[in-house]
Amino acid sequence: MKERILVIAEHHKGHIVPTTYEAITFALELNSLARAKVLVMILGKSVNGMANMLAETTGLDVLGLEGDHLEFYNAEQYKHAIEHAIGNINPLYICMTHTAMGLDLAPGLAVRLNASCITAVEGIKPNGGKLSFVRSMYGGKIQAEIIPELKKSIITLLPGAWKARERYPDKKGSVQIKDVHRGVSISRTFSVKESEEESLNLDDADVIVAAGRGIGTEENLHLVKDLAKIFNKSAIGASKAVCDLGWLGYKYQIGMTGRTVSPRLYIACGISGSSQHISGMKDSQTVVSINLDPNAAIFNVSNYCIVEDVTTFIPVLLEEYKNFVEA
């Protein structure tokens, strides 16, 4: 049995999703610790082009699994295809990103392959000849180190925790494409709907002022909007909690299942900073956070931390700004 570290690539409309390269970075780091070759697996209706591109860019071997039934991601079909394609490969680790696809696929695949499953991993630590995987709990207030007990492990990686490499070995990996049969159809994915809300230009904003549950009420949203107005090229954003409450539409959501942003300045107003939110904004150049809880996880990724109630602090800040402009 060939021992391998497997990466499951993710793609959308014929393009590899960028976080796949983060999973590859992670797999290469595992490779230096666990000494097994990295193999990238890509599943879809027609993956030859993407498989060759991956092999060329990364220098890694790529296995493509093709079938008409794999046009869209579907947990049942993916589990079936992966289980059968593994054949004589012994995957010590199967790595994927903790995206809507990764978190959907990983646990069930782990049961099927008799593997340990650790999700939303942010770090690796050698631990007495074994590897432990670091992940956040309690909205980022606690970090846990977890060791898999079984021989195989499925790991999902928090987006943004590893950086995609800029350079790879200057060679092309091998590409193999296999046809796979359809599994039992107890689940059938037939389309992907685009977002109905028009997208905001959060990507182009130099400054993003984001609202969290700490703003207290929907009426207080104007504070965040007023604060955004003092900056050029600014936009407002929100934590998932605020979107769930219906205070702002989901197009404003920053973090997992929302947008990933990296503005020059990010001001987090009353956002506690779950790892899901942080993964969407931590590459911002400067982060200012205002939160009443001095232990809020958002402060761990902030350059400037202000322990205050946003609802009373922003009015003072706006008042001082007026004085500042006049001076």
Binding site: I118, S136, I147, E149, F299, N300, Y304, I306
Partner: peptide, 22 residues
């Protein structure tokens, strides 16, 4: 069944040194 993952340590996240409390 037996645990398939074992917890070996808990810690508070390191507060990144770059952060300044105003």
């Amino acid at each position: 069944p037996e645990k398939r993952e074992r917890l070996t340590g808990l810690s508070y996240p390191e507060v990144s040194s770059k952060g300044t409390f105003i």
